[in-house]
Amino acid sequence: MKRKSGFLTTLAAGTAAATIVAANAIADGVPYRDVADMLYRVMSADREVYTRMVVQRLTVDHPVITVSEHFQDDLALPLPSQMFRFGAETVADGTGDFSYSLLSLHPINKKNGPGTGLEKEGLEYVADHPGRNFYGEEELGGEDYFAAVYPDFAVAQACVMCHNNHPDSPRTDFQVGDVMGGIVVRIPMD
């Protein structure tokens, strides 16, 4: 519990800082694309650090704890994708200034598949053009959004093992370095 609180505190602090930076940047006239890129760098760094330095190190390299989708019941570490989503949901709970999601064309949980035309187009683009991002605009719920889609790579063996072995995974041949999905950042354009 203490461990989880520590992660969440760090995550919350990072999220708060990112929110302030994003809000100020938009107010100062920084282009949406640059704001989205900055947010992505924070998210991507946090995600990679958690995956490599916590999950990979403590569950694969020096196994002292497990990682589990049901981490509360199993007294285990949350999956990297869960960590990411907890952050996204915490942001969504606190602000409408921006939002983000971790999606995939091959999601274990179907609700994390593309849900809008732009998401589908963006996920296909980053899968077909590794290392390149996708930018666009879309209207959702009567509001216009700037949206950016960034590739999400398999940065550690733990990612590949989990996705390839999960009974609900629609794709089981991932390798380290593959694009497994994408991070979608949205900023309202009002």
């Binding site: 969504a92 409408g96 939002s99 809008t116 959702l140 719920g141 979608v184 949205r186």
Partner: peptide
């Protein structure tokens, strides 16, 4: 609620 606040 937080899951549904995302505009997607």
């Amino acid at each position: 609620r937080k899951k549904f606040r995302n505009p997607r």
